[in-house]
Design a binder for these strands. Structure first.
Lengths: 338, 338
DNA sequence: TTGAAAGCGCTAACAC
DNA sequence: GTGTTAGCGCTTTCAA
């Protein structure tokens, strides 16, 4: 049925070891036999069975990427970065990229417990998901290289940004524009994915407020799912309410855009009547002219994958953490208070 | 080092076959030994080696998805559909989803030649890529189930839409609004990915024009890469030129949005001075209020994956084609000519 | 109900 | 240089 190494050996009148040598570019094969073997391979349209190679080699030639959803553009950007790193290393033919969507806590738990095993995968990239204590212990036991992207954790290699600083930057910027009634529209600070970025941004927001001598107003903090529509609803409540904020800092661009829609819907002018700042700088941010805190999304995946690939190549086990820079991108949704 | 079935067998004082039976829910195991084995598995934190299972079973437990890029939102949506279908079938633990980015013709050729083998993968979903004659022949030879999404081809199962009709719908709609100078802004009609959708839409556009007794004006057709910026440039040329079209039909929403930007940049009001219609109905379309031809993106991936999964389960080899419905979504970028 | 052993297709150590 | 052979860790006959 399917062609195996034995068929090739027979056809070329050599042993299977010789075929294997040719396949693996072992120099200890005479040019003439190599020729014969290559011919047989060609004739039979033979391809080595990857599963058999993997079992024999004890390596899976597989890189696993775990991410929450594909609905959130920032995850897709990071994933793109991973793909490109593999291609740039010329390793996209060497390694298979296996994608695991982790959108429930059960699924996350399952993946975190089942995946970090040498027999499963050669390496793991975890995007934006923060493992809990138990999961961390298990991962630390396993000898599978794991890289965290958009999250840091002691003893793990990671690529991340300073979200606290980002939260401060955004808030201070609005403060500098003369805003005092600054609302913070965020993801759920506690969530099954254990995203921590939002919490850090919130803390940065609070700190900046405090530094400016402004008391934190709980009414100006609402938590909604990471979703445009839900953000819009909440923003509408704020904007239609009595103590309307003059500025909204959203913990993600998607939510900021939701707020932008809410403003439009209520006939408020942005930035004249309301300033809005987001976080991430996804592609849509440019589209709508959103002022935001940019973090390197594509690069985070790229760098994380590079670290993993490097570790796979060198076997170097030391943990390495990369802090990426963030920056304020001023566009058209923020202005001095009038 | 790693725990194997032999370790479990030893610990439970049984043969490896018995352990295997327990793993595979074979009823021919007495409750008491099953108990023993389960205990040993638990104690040793044993997980079967998937590679070994695959080799032994002769199945890879892998589904391959080939797509051009993750930069284009429509592909991501289709991919999401695939993920969800797997989860809804409860098969996301059974099958690994392997992602192959195919962004050059070499890579496409490589993937199309290497992937369709039983030893490689259990099934393949090809998104938006149209294989050429040679590749088709090879695929037809292979006994790996292949489903095309966003493409049809004789003898292949596929999920697709009538792009010709879509092209006509968009054009007729603009015609109905009184427009006569309708430009068609498209992808390259010939491209390494052999996307054919754009060509069909173009043909639909031409047909609608013809039906209305309007001669096709080559100056009103430009081809650019599937990219917002490039589309914007071209649109600007049209809009700043002498024979400015009163309407633009873009072969994708991304390009339509590029055109929208161009109009804004030149101070043209949309839809008062210029009507714009796109194709796809990606999420951004709603964001900017773009009128467009909607095709079911998520559903295409979902349906394709379902077909594949079903075929994997039943072994049913007959080819099946699903034509999905498209519809015109009127938003705020189109209006009667003034 | 259970265990021994063959076999999945490959790699690599070991002989020649 | 090249062939023989022993694994890699499973599943699955086939006997018992």
């Amino acid at each position: 049925m399917t062609v195996t190494i034995r068929d090739v050996a027979k056809k070329a009148n050599v042993g299977i070891a010789t075929v294997s040598r040719v396949l693996n570019d072992n120099p200890a094969v005479s040019p003439s036999t190599r020729e014969k073997v290559l011919k047989a391979i060609e004739d039979l349209d033979y391809t080595p069975n990857p599963t058999a190679q993997r079992l024999s080699l004890g390596r899976t030639h597989t890189i696993s990427v775990i991410l929450p959803f594909l609905t959130i553009p920032s995850f897709v950007e990071r994933l793109r970065g991973v793909q490109h790193a593999m291609a740039d290393c010329g390793l996209d033919c060497e390694y298979d990229l296996v994608l695991y969507g982790a959108d429930t806590s059960e699924r996350i738990d399952y993946l975190f417990s089942i995946l970090p095993r040498k027999s499963r995968t050669d390496g793991i990239l975890i995007l934006s998901l923060r493992p809990d204590e138990i999961q961390v212990q298990r991962m630390l036991q396993s000898d599978v290289p794991i890289i965290l992207v958009d999250v840091t954790y002691p003893k793990f290699s990671s690529v991340y940004v300073d979200n606290f600083k980002g939260g401060m930057m955004a808030t201070q910027y609005l403060l500098g524009l003369g805003h005092h009634k600054i609302a913070f529209l965020s993801d759920y600070l506690k969530n099954v994915f254990r995203f921590s970025a939002m919490k850090d941004r919130f803390d940065g927001y609070c700190q900046a407020l405090k530094d400016a001598g402004i008391e934190f107003n709980p009414a100006y903090h609402r938590q909604v799912p990471h979703d445009r529509e839900q953000a819009r609803e909440v923003a509408k409540e704020w904007l239609a309410g009595e103590h309307r904020p003059t500025a909204i800092f959203a913990s993600s661009d998607m939510q900021a855009i939701g707020a932008l829609f809410a403003a439009r819907e209520l006939g408020l002018r942005v930035p004249e009547d309301l300033s809005i700042i987001g976080f991430d700088d996804i592609r849509d941010a440019e589209l709508v002219g959103l002022t935001t805190i940019r973090q390197p999304l594509f690069e985070s995946g790229y760098t994380g994958a590079m670290m993993l690939l490097d570790r796979l190549r060198t076997g170097n086990k030391e943990t390495k953490t990369v802090l990426q820079e963030i920056e304020l991108v001023e566009r058209k949704t923020t202005a001095p208070i009038s």
